[in-house]
Computed example of a mutant assay.
Amino acid sequence: MSGQPQSGPAVPRVRVANVANLLTGIRLVLVPIFLLALFAGNGHETSYRITAFVIFAVAVITDRFDGSLARTYGMVTEFGKLADPIADKMLIGAALIGLSMLGDLPWWVTVVVLVRELGITVLRLAVLRHGVIPAGRGGKLKTLVQAVAIGLFVLPLHSWPSPWLTVAWVIMWAAVVLTVLTGIDYVVSAIRDSRERSAGR
């Protein structure tokens, strides 16, 4: 016996270049394409708005797939845990700002959502040296409800029967409430983790 400590089997590192991260990259690329379609024409032409909705929907679907693939096939990386929520925020932020610029969504909705999202992003970066805090179930539900609400507003509701606009606003209100509540929960969790780390020193 050499007396040197025995090292266990090496844990294989997950490659950053994997399918899950590729889908996250595709979502980032779709953001400017979505904006081009949203503002095409006068910004309110039915065909262009439907095209923008399809692009937005595809981007949202990639978010559902990349997370599932990463967890199922062991492709979770620190890059993915950080880039995935940033890609979500870029897509949601671009859509909200675009809709507000077109006059289809009040600016207060956009401001409330973006302040929360930017604040949480800054918080994620601040605690990055201690490890990435992954999105919880509440955050994922928030993102889904936001996506449904925004998707409805991207559609040409002005040419649809009035009940659809009411449905869109009900879901948007739910998205705003979830946005605020999950933001508070994330901050509380970050503070609690920070205190636990300090107590463990």
Rank of each mutant, 00 (worst) to 15 (best):
D88K: 00
D63T: 07
K81D: 03
L38I: 05
M101K: 09
S100E: 09
V60N: 02
T51D: 13
L23Y: 00
L82Y: 05
S68F: 07
A83K: 04
Y73V: 05
I61H: 03
A95L: 03
A52I: 08
T46Q: 08
T62E: 03
K81L: 12
T46M: 10
S100Q: 10
D63W: 09
L99T: 02
L102C: 07
E45C: 04
G98D: 05
F53Y: 10
F56W: 05
A70T: 02
A20I: 01
F39V: 02
L22Q: 11
M90S: 01
A59D: 02
F39D: 08
I33C: 15
T46A: 11
M101I: 13
N42P: 06
M90F: 15
T72S: 14
P106D: 04
G98I: 00
T72D: 14
I86S: 00
G41V: 01
A20M: 02
V14W: 11
V60W: 01
A83P: 03
A95Q: 03
I92R: 03
V76K: 07
F34C: 09
T72K: 15
M75Y: 10
A40P: 11
R13D: 14
R71G: 04
M101N: 13
V112I: 13
L23W: 00
V54H: 00
G25V: 10
R27E: 10
T51W: 13
N21Q: 04
V19F: 07
P32G: 13
V19G: 05
A57I: 09
R27V: 13
V29R: 12
V111L: 08
F65Q: 09
A57F: 12
V19Q: 10
D104T: 14
G80S: 03
A83N: 01
A17C: 08
L36K: 10
I55S: 12
R13S: 14
A52E: 07
G43T: 11
L36T: 12
I50P: 00
V109S: 07
V54G: 02
F65R: 07
T24E: 08
N18A: 05
V16F: 14
V111A: 06
F56N: 00
T51R: 11
L36Y: 00
S100L: 06
A10M: 15
H44W: 10
R15V: 14
